[in-house]
Design a protein around this nucleic acid. Sequence first.
DNA 1: TCGTTATATTGCAATATTACGATAAATAGT
DNA 2: ACTATTTATCGTAATATTGCAATATAACGA
Lengths: 110, 110
Amino acid sequence: MGLAKTELFTQGQNTLALFAKAFAHPARIAILEQLFKTEGCVCGDLVTEIGLAQPTISQHLKELKNLGLIKGNVEGTSVCYCIDPDNWQKMKQEMEVFMNQDTAAPEDCC
Amino acid sequence: MGLAKTELFTQGQNTLALFAKAFAHPARIAILEQLFKTEGCVCGDLVTEIGLAQPTISQHLKELKNLGLIKGNVEGTSVCYCIDPDNWQKMKQEMEVFMNQDTAAPEDCC
DNA sequence: TCGTTATATTGCAATATTACGATAAATAGT
DNA sequence: ACTATTTATCGTAATATTGCAATATAACGA
């Protein structure tokens, strides 16, 4: 089907999956790493840094922006993108709660 | 295309994306949460807990197993699944390094 | 051996994702 | 106004993902 049955799951499970989807492509990982690394927010430099075509990068940026993980500001002819610290923090929180679960299973379970 | 250009990215970026892909579906989040929650590892109980068909659950389990995040043991006619603690730890580590990056951008950047 | 139960695999339909060429839109400089 | 530069959008092709019915496989008990 290609369509996730979101109605079967809690909101927490669905939003966590959405955040994870943002990281589920190396290009978006690379974009985010660049945005963290550079002091001035890079814009179209991403296109040259990463080897993908400009429309492809633009599309990935749009997804990250829709999720709220980054924000962009028009500055002349170019656009300045950077991490949205508040939403990044929220994402991190949810991700960590999930990853830090303790298993109730005994050592020799499997 | 639907095909990620993995050759453009570092191994770290690619493996991180693969781990994230495991979490990029609420059914797999739900499965993992169940495996953490139950003392005895659940097996086909997942099918009744989550509302998806048995082949669908089986497929999600296979993906998680291929990634190494869970392991399964045959026990009679049923299979006991549980979290693989070592690989889970490794995944967590990589994920946290990525999420805990500090931004080099100034407050008022965007 | 036969039936039952539990899980895996196959095959397929519906939808989503990825990538990019072509093109549009927006802005700055002349 | 014209041109160059930068980014976004549209359209489309190729591939991936999701979900399930049907079926296969495996192990147990009678």
